[in-house]
Amino acid sequence: MLFLIIKRILLGLITLFIVSLITFVGTEILPGDACTTYLERQAFGEQLEACYRRLGLNVPAYERYVSWAVNAIQGDFGYSLSGEMPIKEVLGPRIKNSLVLASAAIFIGIPIALILGIVTALWRDKLPDVAISTVTIFAMTIPEFISATLLILIIAIWLEWLPGIVIVPTDVSLLELLPNIILPVIAIAMIMTAHMARMVRSSVIQVMASEYVQMAILKGVPYWKMVFKHVLPNALLPAINVVALTIAWLLGGVVVTEVVFNYPGLGRLVIESISNRDLPTVQALAIILASIYVSINLLADLMTLMLNPRLKTLQIRK
């Protein structure tokens, strides 16, 4: 058991290492480098040399990678090009803002997805299922930028209920942020919730068709007791991993949604830094987003390990 946990953590770290390599190499082969981009036409002679020295670009690539990696582990991602600010400071409030947005979407999305998934599975092919499934198909296929645009058009412009575009400084307090995030959260949560609901549905249906559920019925177990004791624990276990993947996928949706709503989070930073060719920031973003992805999956793996009696005793039996 302990061995399995350690193994998963190690695998996660290896993944992060490969990601850092990929992004490092990726940014390395961009035409030009940080200094030529920054200095633009003055990129020659003394000034270029000075810039190289300042950014440490005058040493071989692998040395730069090592020193970058060592610093990154300590949370130091160097300086951003555009603002000449430490990236750490640029990122801090942005991460907070995005985290608020994403976790709101997750905390609203997961319970709704569970309820919808279970309801559609238990009333399979009946009216609630047909109605909800039709809605989820639409919610699942419409890109975030379309649902976000429509939300702004209908709720903010036509009905004037909520602000459409977020116009707040980056380091705004949580309370001030709140009314602004309602529409973005809906836009993000919609697609994710729809996906998860469909997964929960099929998992529950699969378990409902199992022999042990049939046995529970034949044992005289009342319906709802059967659902909660015999069906859901077994149906939701495999869903955990899939839900984790969905959440990780949502990171992409966050980027688009933040742009639509002009929300001061990581996503908008991604677009800004890429447009500005701010490579140190891009590298930092890549590694941060990847570690979020890796840790969500790790968490899901560990949860499955803890909850599955089969895996729990696997080690003992072998």
């Binding site: 199992s210 042990y212 034949l218 077994n234």
Partner: peptide
């Protein structure tokens, strides 16, 4: 009461 064919499948795993 029923005694099923394949008890391995018919006992709830969790």
């Amino acid at each position: 009461a029923m005694i099923p064919q394949n008890a391995g499948q018919a006992l709830t795993p969790n």
